[in-house]
Design a protein around this nucleic acid. Sequence first.
DNA 1: GCAAAAGTGTTAGGAGTACACCCATGC
DNA 2: GCATGGGTGTACTCCTAACACTTTTGC
Lengths: 225, 225
Amino acid sequence: MEVTNPKYEKQGIHLIASIFTVDKGIVKVLLIKRKNNPYKDMWALTGGALYNDEDVEEGLKREMYEKTGMRNIDIKLCDVFGKKDRSPVMRMVALSYIGIIDASKVEIVKETLKTSNAEWFQLTEIPNLAYDHNEIVEKSILYLKEQILNTDILKSFYPNGFTIPELQTICETILEKKLDRRNFRKKLINLNLIYDTNEEVNFVGKKKAKLYKFKKNKENKKIFN
Amino acid sequence: MEVTNPKYEKQGIHLIASIFTVDKGIVKVLLIKRKNNPYKDMWALTGGALYNDEDVEEGLKREMYEKTGMRNIDIKLCDVFGKKDRSPVMRMVALSYIGIIDASKVEIVKETLKTSNAEWFQLTEIPNLAYDHNEIVEKSILYLKEQILNTDILKSFYPNGFTIPELQTICETILEKKLDRRNFRKKLINLNLIYDTNEEVNFVGKKKAKLYKFKKNKENKKIFN
DNA sequence: GCAAAAGTGTTAGGAGTACACCCATGC
DNA sequence: GCATGGGTGTACTCCTAACACTTTTGC
């Protein structure tokens, strides 16, 4: 069966991810510099076009691996950007995702076939981006704030465990407000979301802190309102 | 600028909506019968392919109007279905949306250029559907339950106002559980989401009930946990 | 008058919030 | 020894959940 109706021809799908990190108390987003037209030499969000021969999920994994070197980032659908002229080349609909990773544990790939650079940008210093990526990243930041206290986003930040003060700092940075230490800890434990590994680690503080991990197969619960 | 890379060729976007209603205490979903191949004469969710010359938002409005005759349904992005072989014709990625309308106030268009019938189906009596629509509708039902107590979905159900017992019945039907009348009313009023129109109407009950409307421009608040 | 549904207020329990002190470590 | 940050318990407040009676109307 052939498609002959030109109404449906030449459409494509962009898979766009706003990958965030928290670095020394500052939220940053990963941007790459484009090597090719359109928008040659401009900064853009990570991502690219979906191939014909891969599932959307596969395409996301491929793009994430190519751009960050990480294989198991939990990313979450955020929105769809569907203005008909959002790409100058051909009709492209963008699926926008968000994720959060620990930048210090990842070697960001600086140059690829299609990118000449990759950097973490503070949210206040995001330059003019390719396509409608400024709009996409703005929405993603709002969505991140909405969703950060849902543990399924936080989980991929700490594959090897975390200390509670460390986790709290991430949340406070993203939400731009202080949380109560005692209540934060209590809530995580009461919700039965984490477990004590009986290890202790030195984080930034002066005193050793307990290492926790997220429990597996727990449904997505909101930590705070 | 021409696209020559065959990796990106011949992709399309399906806009699929699971439109729900509540009819005499029963949740139903709108299905249409396909007139054309593929899946000729099979039932399917409403929706269709995005045109090249329209925004996604425009395409959704067009499809909703063609299938229901309604112009201002609030629909909400639910998920993306991106398996590479989900359509036998060409590579199509489906954007799945949910919405809820009052079926008694709408004349469903039974036959169109592409559909030979349209009916409301109980959720327990959904037949084998075209494409992966069974999977899509299953996810949509879960999402509807999750989201129904967020007022922005409920709003479009009652463009002309509602009585509180009437609204409660809808919620109870969808959630498949009883809610307390006094607490339901209290919460809606305390959250400042609705206002008393000082009109009274006869709903199903024996006694007249007050007519309320949702306030405009109120942020999306969750009614209950 | 009686059955069915709408409207209203109070109370008890639990979750959320606010708050102060002790302990371990690095300098 | 002192400054910095980690760990813990308690009291108060507010939201939630549970619950009973009166009023209106159709039959």
